[in-house]
Design a protein around this nucleic acid. Structure first.
Lengths: 248, 248
DNA sequence: CGGCATGTTGAATCTAATCAATCCACGTGG
DNA sequence: CCACGTGGATTGATTAGATTCAACATGCCG
């Protein structure tokens, strides 16, 4: 039987899924009764590694995580950032072998959900199967947007773009408002996510501050001029495929 | 009733799906009986556009296609290349609005399959639902690999990487062998896919030829030194998640 | 207080972009 | 059959954006 704490855990997932669709009571109940194992992890700690074949998925309950690939010479590409409600390794349900790693960014609480239970859920609720599928498709849509940024946008645009994206994703699950949100990333993290060096990220951030677009200190981002940042970053939130469109 | 020609069309899809899984006779029959509308399109012709809400998916029967995003100032990022057997807009099944465009690269024959029929298929055959899901997950895995390349690999590595990838994908569906495959891409296409300029692509190709790694002319790529190209491009085919692992 | 991770700044360098001209292959029409 | 047009490929010269290397500042944690 899932405990009260576990159900609380699943509430995170429900909130996330409701940001991209609508759930019936039955569906919510089915999710609530998924069995989970809750763990607390330190910052910068691998959850699943490249090459692993995990038997469960990882739901972020608190803190941030990221997916990344390591190349020879120690180069790193961060593929995505994840916040509470996300299941960053949902793809393992149908791609057994990890082709990248998943790690915490901050200290984090995560819930492990057995593949077995998730598979059962998809069998009993085809509509939830479609919804989880949709979630992985949005994941892919974000990859496409990042690829476009890294391939064809300036450093300035890339950073602005990421800030807009993270703010909207956090806002969609109630973790941000008033153009202010947590951003527990180092400049090295930003660089590795955006295909830049930390030195260059530092200089662009300086310029953004100079133009009063943002404030960024003590892990908190404030977007001082949303419309302006949107414009100069050429940001269009459509690719996030959020059900409830956010801050215009 | 699907005609003989249509069934022939679906054989392409079956061959592709068998490159990433195994299909039962029942499943193959179900796929064969999907209704399709077959079209022939010229080269460089949009199939679906950014913002569209199509009511069918597009199966490539012959020729190449690509997905791309257009930015202001006419910059273009190509997100993926597609070959016969691919369904490049399968995601529209659960993400109704296109966040990018799909176009032919060469003259091409395509089959349109109504969403309605595909949805019915996923309801009647949960195993096929999982398989199509898996296909979109591999799609995403390739995005991740491209992102990593554009973000952190040299121009040389990126190009080598793409050549290895396309060769293996073509080989997996029987469209290439002996380290020789069609590559109907211009240097501008390569540049837009890899986050480079065509001038730079040209110079890197020159170097590759000089090092006797490849031959590339009249739309045909020959990989003259597979192991060497693999090595210098740091290529590992794992991310393609092919069922039958190919040329070592 | 000390130590280490993170952030900041400057100078030199380099990869790849940009701009621009030319070349080449191919198909077409006179 | 050859002149011409066109898209693609190639090359050179120059520039710019970002990297690299290095030093130093800041801030946080034990």
């Amino acid at each position: 039987m899932p405990s009260a704490a576990d159900q609380n855990a699943m509430t995170q997932l429900i909130r996330k899924l409701e940001s991209i669709a609508t759930l019936s009571d039955k569906e919510q109940q089915a999710i609530q009764s998924l069995p989970v194992k809750i763990h607390t992890l330190g910052a910068r700690h691998d959850i699943v590694r490249d090459g692993d074949q995990p038997r469960h998925c990882c739901l972020i309950l608190d803190g941030w995580a990221c997916r990344y690939k390591l190349l020879r010479e120690g180069k790193r590409q961060i593929l995505s950032f994840h916040i509470p409600g996300d299941v960053p390794d949902l793809q393992t349900l149908h791609l057994p072998t990890m082709d990248h790693s998943l790690a915490t960014v901050t200290k984090a609480t995560v819930a492990f959900i057995p593949h077995e239970s998730l598979r059962q859920l998809t069998v009993n609720f085809p509509s939830l199967s479609a919804l989880l599928w949709r979630d992985t498709l949005i994941d892919a849509a974000i990859f496409r947007e990042w690829m476009t940024g890294i391939g064809r946008r300036s450093a300035f645009e890339r950073i602005g773009h990421l800030f807009c994206e993270m703010y909207l994703k956090l806002q969609a699950v109630g973790l941000a408002e008033g153009y202010r949100c947590p951003l527990p990333l180092t400049q090295v993290d930003l660089a590795d996510a955006l295909g830049l060096t930390s030195v260059h990220v530092n200089r662009v951030l300086k310029e953004m501050r100079g133009r009063t677009l943002i404030t960024l200190r003590s892990q908190t981002l404030v977007i001082e001029a949303w419309d302006e940042l949107l414009r100069v970053s050429e940001f269009d939130p459509m690719y996030l495929h959020l059900e409830k469109r956010a801050a215009a």
